[in-house]
Design a protein around this nucleic acid. Structure first.
Lengths: 95, 95
DNA sequence: CATTTGCGCAACCTCCTGGTTGCGTGTGAG
DNA sequence: CTCACACGCAACCAGGAGGTTGCGCAAATG
């Protein structure tokens, strides 16, 4: 679950401000290493939540707005799984 | 999260049939070792979802009905966390 | 040109979860 | 008494997540 991590959610929120940011820029403001941030960005990219674009020597990341609805779907599916666990439990309770 | 595991939920459902079951009885029907089941039961016991009672050479486990509502609360809190993640995401979408 | 900056890659580390194996002990059955 | 069964304890293992370190390379800077 790419969005189950608060670090990634906060990186995503930085990107949601609009302008693309490089890895180093995204690293500022976190207590992580550049490599740590890189890994999280790779995960977000694999999930098609974020896009990478090489500009000169920088890797600029930007959010893919069209993907946010998918992300939202993903999260609500996750939420629904818990709802189902509750439902199962409540069925058990009735028996 | 004691109930976030499908193995534990299925053990719990076995116990919800009513009669107390020993570890060996609970192990039948799973593809796990007795020790694996024992660990899961210990987790359920620590979470006060299940009660252990030594009867002769057996350890009989039974579900604590009064705890199931707490368990349900717990699960809905988990579900709510995902809902909050969705909400956060949707706020970001608006900005 | 030399130096700095921004990266990518790979190895490594720690912690947690789910799971197994080995062994010792108490209990019940014959 | 003897033996098999049910269990507890502890050590161990594999995999994945989150993170860091070390190194090398390409682009910008002066």
């Amino acid at each position: 679950m790419a969005l189950g991590d608060t670090t990634r959610l906060s990186l995503l929120s930085r990107l949601c401000e609009g302008r693309p940011l490089s890895i180093s820029q995204l690293t500022e403001g976190t207590r992580l290493t550049r490599q740590g941030v890189t890994k999280h960005l790779a995960i977000l990219e694999r999930a098609h939540i974020v896009a990478k674009r090489r500009v000169g020597r920088e890797s600029q990341y930007s959010v893919r707005p069209e993907s946010l609805s998918e992300a939202s779907d993903y999260l609500s599916r996750a939420s629904r799984q818990w709802d189902q666990a509750i439902a199962r439990l409540e069925r058990l309770l009735e028996e």
